[in-house]
Structures are given as C-alpha cells and as structure tokens.
Design a binder for these strands. Structure first.
Lengths: 196, 196
DNA sequence: AATTTGTTTAACAAATTTGTTAGGTTTGCG
DNA sequence: CGCAAACCTAACAAATTTGTTAAACAAATT
C-alpha cells in the first residue's frame, strides 16, 4: 500500500464498472466516467494512462471476479442440489448489481479480437462437470453433455436480467412486476433443471 | 421506387446490420461501416443524414423484424408443441445470422434512454400467452406465470449464442464443437420445457 | 446532344473524444 | 519548518469521428 491512498483509483474503477456493467452504457466516454466519479478526467489518465488500459483493467477484473465466483460456488462442500441452489442465489445477486457484465465482456472480445484472459481458473469447472455427470449416472439429472446443463443453468439465470429492457417493452412490465418475477425464478429454475 | 435505384441504401443498412448484429462490434464508426460496404462515407450521410439516423433506422427495422418473427411463429396454426418446435427452428436460424441483435437493442435502449418503438405487434404475444395457460390447465406444462415459460424458452435459445465467445474461453470449445452443441439443443430445449 | 435528376466522392470543416503538460495542492516525514 | 512524493487539475494539443459542400459522374428523358 502506498503511503498516500485517496481511494481515487478504486473510485474510478468502480464508477466505470457501474456505468458499463450496471447501466449498460457500453460506449461511455472518459468524460462520462470522470463526471460520474466526480473527478477530473486527467485523473483517469494519471491512474490508468489511457482509456484502453482502464477498460482492459476493468475487463480483466470482471473476468477474474466471474471466474472466482464460479470456482467458489462450484467447490462448495455441499450436496449437489444445495450447491446449485447456492450458485443460483449468488449469481442472481451479482447479476442484480451488474447485469451487463457478461454483455460487456462479449462485446469487448468481439471488438478487440479475442484477447488473452489472465488468471481464470478452469479446474473447478472441470471437476464440477464431472460431478454433474455423476448426478446423471445417479439418475438425478437427465443424461446429456454436462456443458448443456451449465448452459441451461446460466441461460435461465442471466438472460432475463440482460434482456429486461426488451421484455419491459414487449410485455409492458413495471420494474416491480419484473422484480417479483425474478424472485419467483429461483425456485422455478431448480424445478426446471431437476424436473421435480 | 425511384427511377434510379443502385441498391446502395439497402447495402449500407445490411452492412451496418452485419457489423452490429453479426460481428457484435457495437461501437463501429461510420467509417467502419462505409469501408465494409465499399462505399464512400459521404454516401452514408446522403442516404441517412446522420449516424444516429442510420442507427435508429436499423434499430427500428430490427425491432419490427423481431416482432414479425414472433407474431408469425406464434400465430402458426399448429398444435402447441409443433408450434414451439417451429419457433425454436426459426429462432435458431435467425440467431445464427444475427446473434447480437438483441444485445444491440438493449444497449441502444440503455444509452439513448428508452426510446419509443414503432409498429410492434403485441396481440399475438397475448393470445400465445393464453394458449400457454391453456396447456398448463391441460397438464402439458407445469403451472406458472406464462411469462416464465417464454423467458425460459428464449433464455435457453438465445443466451448460449450470445455468450459463445465467453463459453469458448471458459470451456475451450472450438467453433465446430460449439455448432454441434447448438444442434443438440433443439431437441434438448423441447425436453426441458415439456419435461418429457 | 443537351438537360435533368439522382448518385457518388474528394476535400474541407466542425465536433467530439482522447491524451499531455506544467503547475498547483495536499500529505507524510525527517 | 522544509521538502519530497503522490495527487489533482486547468489548459492545451492531438487524434478521431462526424457532418457538409461543391463538383464530378452516370443514366434516363427531352
């Protein structure tokens, strides 16, 4: 830790994340971010050198956070079903605060041309897939490629939150009606995945 | 139709859609689009006056196309299950060509601040929801808010395609392996939705 | 062939966004 | 205190992106 830490670097990163991941304004300018953080735009260059580097930092951190969340939930020492339940809870909370994080990352990958990602943990995912396969042998889950199970899980979790503005338009849902629906989904997703 | 139609206007729109919806480069510049279309950038202003108007035109057309697809599939005079099957087929083809259309629309809604959308048909969706409710009464579907059923359907369909670059990173999937998985999903989604 | 009309583009201008610099401010510390 | 280091900002410069204009070009019509 440096002798002087005003927290500005952290503030800028968090503000950038809020604008990009929470508000979904994917082409926010440095001015937008600086204003929202209440700092001079030059501070942004002081800490991150360039817009690209700020974006890249935020991207890498988001990737690691995602990887970390997955790893923690997947390594949790609980029975399978409870583990899934925990994963859903954790993910819904995170998606509630940063619904557009994944969208941002995909857009980033599409524009920059698939960049390398640092420090993502692949092992917990692999062992979790083995665990899923075991459940299929046990008969708890329908047999399929375990990747499908994961795709189903994350699809059912993420997509509605990502597309909320669109669903609002098509179904004329209010904010609160939508929140109510999302709460119902916790149990619903479990039922869909486990067919019980 | 004007006496002279070089097809340039159409070409520009289609190129814009390709870059935005297919390649997912959501902050493409007018230069990017003009280059990809092989026309001078001024042509873009000649036909659309400004970048914003081009984007808006493309946005509205995409919205109407989406609404149209939904309406057609939902009004199809077939038994429920076959209707869903058709909807899945149609949607998977469209998503294959324009995976980022929905992402673009949401981003647009988030940045421009929920703009009005012209000519979207809401009636077919309503009658389809009634049909879903009827299936629940019949016992073909688990009882739930029919919006959940639609959310589940579109989630399972769209999300994997939208997040393909991310899944590629996390699971180390090749293009062809991914395509294979997506083909498997057609039947899988039906099974998940109907629990049979 | 001359004219009209729609189309295309090069060159220029304006606006926006990003990056730099030099100096001012604050804070910790001998 | 004095001063060194980190922090912050106003002002400026550069780069990028968007918008305009005037002229060239091509095809249809008279």
């Amino acid at each position: 830790m440096p002798s002087k830490d005003t927290g500005t670097e952290q503030l800028i990163k968090e503000t950038a994340k809020r604008i990009l991941f929470a508000e979904g304004r994917l082409h926010a300018t440095t001015q937008d971010i600086a204003d929202a953080a209440g700092v001079n735009r030059a501070a942004l260059h002081y800490y991150f050198r360039s817009r690209d580097q700020l974006i890249d930092t935020v991207f890498q951190e988001a990737m690691q956070a995602l990887s970390q969340r997955l790893a923690t939930a997947m390594k949790s020492p609980q029975p399978f079903r409870e583990k899934i339940q925990e994963l859903i809870e954790v993910f819904l909370i995170d998606m509630g605060t940063y619904p557009y994080q994944e969208t941002f990352m995909v857009t980033q990958l599409n524009t920059v041309g698939h960049q390398l990602i640092e420090h993502i943990q692949i092992d917990p995912v692999k062992s979790f897939m083995a665990e899923i396969e075991q459940e299929m042998v046990n008969g708890t889950l329908e047999p399929m490629n375990p990747i499908h199970f994961l795709m189903n899980l994350f699809s059912l979790l993420s997509y509605p939150l990502i597309m909320a503005p669109l669903y609002g338009q098509f179904f004329g849902l209010s904010e609160s009606a939508f929140k109510e629906l999302m709460n119902e989904r916790k149990g619903l997703i479990i039922r869909v995945l486990f067919k019980s």
